[in-house]
Design a protein around this nucleic acid. Structure first.
Lengths: 208, 208
DNA sequence: GATAATCCGTAACTACAATTACTGATCCTG
DNA sequence: CAGGATCAGTAATTGTAGTTACGGATTATC
């Protein structure tokens, strides 16, 4: 099998494993079930990934990178920070509360090695937060843009993620996502007056 | 065994199970390990709790109630909402990021039935949030105190819990807890001007 | 005190998942 | 095209955890 073909095959395996993880949970996602789902043999899986933890590391890495890549803002959006956040906020909520990310977080919660959590945090938050910090650095001239990032994320997401992971919350719908993002942005601009006041009027009166 | 003695024995079992959960994680907390840790027989555990999920439901319920009870504010503290939050905020952070709650959340994340998550959410958040909402209702005369609760919790905790659960964060130390609570309170008071402005001067200048 | 119920310590049973091994089919390379 | 490497399908091995069963010790009740 050539490198290109193996790469595509690995991706197929890693995506199938995530689908199983989402559908059946961590405990029920076995090497045998992955092999069956993708029409591969156990011997191949063990040869390519070493062992089950190895498969899971690769699977989490590949999938979280892809989800992360769908989140990154292009440099062009930095020209209008408000518009950038208006677009980014809902996307971030949707991804972080998605069934896929919830399943990945659950796998990390169950992983005694800590590897999965490390991969998720470094690849996910570790990429998104600096980007937000960069945006706030430009938009707000604050001496602590990283702190603004924490505040924004707190306002935007609150404890959604833990509630999703412990199974006490369905994914938020599009309306709720929109409202949540708008509220977070509105509150952020009230807290940091240097924020460009280019909010649509419908948002500026959302809070008494 | 009399009712009183059995009640005490059950509590001993449920506490020992939590200690094992904290120390070894969900996967390694077996019926056999619980029995051994507390000097009970498997037959007794199965007779009293039915099965492993039953033991876990009881264990989570008993322990989360105890943790919750240590968090509730007395009615007397409502007289001074700021002081109440200054005292409550750090306590809430400390408890929610503790090894015990992290272990319980991890068990819930691994539980396909959803029962553990339900118990945790209803007993924990379900008790704390209404209390906060009541406090904000008095302190702020807002038309939506429940929304203020969400905002406060977002500012106070952000994504600490999920980061603890996936293993990417140690428990915050006392200084960090204090700073986090003070910041959340300061930001909340800036957002909602009806908030009594009785902050100590050291806090009011904490943000430029 | 005698008897029944309960609990402890331990063995046994069953199912299942991780991993390795094997054979034959398929693919790749020279 | 031939030979070697790789992969699929499947069986086998091993260890472990959930659960049940059993005999003896302890406790509770009459």
């Amino acid at each position: 099998m050539r490198q290109e073909a193996q790469k595509a095959r690995r991706k197929e395996i890693e995506q199938a494993a995530l689908a199983l993880l989402v559908q059946h949970g961590y405990a029920a996602t076995t090497m045998a079930s992955v092999a069956k789902a993708v029409g591969a043999s156990l011997e191949t899986l063990y040869k390519w990934y070493g062992d089950k933890p190895g498969l899971f590391r690769a699977m989490v890495q590949a999938n979280i990178e892809e989800l992360r890549d769908g989140l990154l803002m292009s440099a062009a959006t930095f020209r209008d920070p408000i518009a950038a956040l208006q677009e980014f906020g809902p996307r971030l909520i949707a991804v972080l509360t998605s069934e896929e990310v919830v399943a990945l977080n659950r796998a990390a919660a169950a992983d005694p090695s800590g590897d999965l959590g490390r991969i998720i945090a470094e690849t996910g938050r570790g990429s998104i937060a600096p980007q937000l910090t960069g945006l706030f650095d430009r938009a707000m001239e604050s001496d602590d843009p990283a702190q603004i990032t924490e505040i924004y994320l707190g306002l935007l997401l609150g404890d959604l993620q833990i509630r999703r992971v412990i199974g006490r919350m369905p994914p938020p719908d599009a309306t709720e996502i929109r409202q949540r993002s708008d509220r977070a942005l509105e509150l952020l601009c009230r807290l940091f007056p240097a924020c460009p006041s280019k909010l649509p009027s419908e948002i500026s009166v959302a809070f008494a």
